[in-house]
């Protein structure tokens, strides 16, 4: 797809929506205008809609080894700030993985987090229904119902979930989290519902890496859909047929 066509489309749609203000406030311009289109604010009192499926595209060719801006942004946004004596007991909602193809020696670096599957194994196995998928495809743990059995952690093929091993304090008001429950990337649901992007995506974009793209996979005109249509993207452990909402490009 040519860049020009995309731009004119975007300008038109952005103007139509009249929500440019949000985008312009934060450079670098055009990308964020796209975002304001991709992610309209849902009116108060309205539930999430299944017409939307939120997803993320990770361009691993732009993701640098050693860069962990997204991880830091996630921790700041979600108040993941506790000190844990044994790091293995600490929560990680997003992490950087370095992989090397055994045969060719080709290396990639990429962020790994909840893949927001359309057929999530965690939701299938959860005994109380605390693991759940919202209508718009975001997989969450309802921590009012979670009993901390950790079956979902056993079932997750991506090790995307963490169990809170110790009492916490100083949480971010918008991101409650606490002892004895399982948690994972929420795709920054509290931000998305306000029309913002997940913190990791925003930080990656602001820093100019542009390795992460957030948007609606159901909307054929969203940038994420168009990029996914134009370039080869892959789902991790595609063999499990989970239909993940996070897609990777370049591996």
């Amino acid at each position: 797809m040519s860049h020009n066509k995309r731009r004119s489309f975007l300008v038109a749609s952005a103007a139509g929506l009249g929500t440019v203000a949000l985008g312009v406030a934060v450079a670098p311009g055009i990308r964020l205008i796209e975002v304001s289109h991709a992610n309209p604010v849902r009116p108060a009192g309205q539930p999430a809609s299944s017409a939307v499926r939120w997803g993320m595209l990770v361009d691993t060719t732009r993701c640098a080894t050693g860069c962990d801006d997204c991880v830091k942004a996630c921790a700041a946004e979600n108040g993941i700030n506790e000190t844990v004596a044994d790091k293995r007991q600490g929560a990680q909602w997003i992490r950087k993985i370095d992989i090397k193809e055994a045969k060719t020696g080709r290396q990639h670096s990429l962020p790994m987090m909840c893949q927001h599957c359309a057929n999530p194994p965690c939701v299938d196995v959860c005994p109380t229904g605390a693991s759940m998928k919202r209508a718009d495809g975001i997989v969450l743990v309802d921590r009012h119902v979670c009993i901390g059995c950790r079956y979902c952690m056993m079932a997750c093929p991506y090790k995307a979930r963490s169990f809170v091993h110790q009492p916490l304090s100083g949480q971010n008001p918008e991101v409650p989290r606490g002892l004895g429950c399982v948690e994972s990337c929420t795709l920054c649901v509290h931000r998305v519902d306000k029309g913002q992007q997940p913190a990791c995506v925003e930080s990656c974009t602001t820093a100019g890496h542009n390795a992460l793209l957030f948007g609606d996979l159901n909307d054929p005109n969203s940038e994420i859909s168009r990029r996914a249509a134009a370039a080869a993207t892959s789902q991790i452990r595609a063999d499990l047929k989970l239909n993940t909402g996070v897609r990777y490009q370049g591996i």
Partner: peptide
């Protein structure tokens, strides 16, 4: 309050885990 922040206008600090 195990999870919810009981203070008004609180801003959590973030740290790399």
């Amino acid at each position: 309050w195990d999870c919810h922040q009981p203070k008004a206008g609180y801003k959590a600090t973030g740290a790399k885990p």
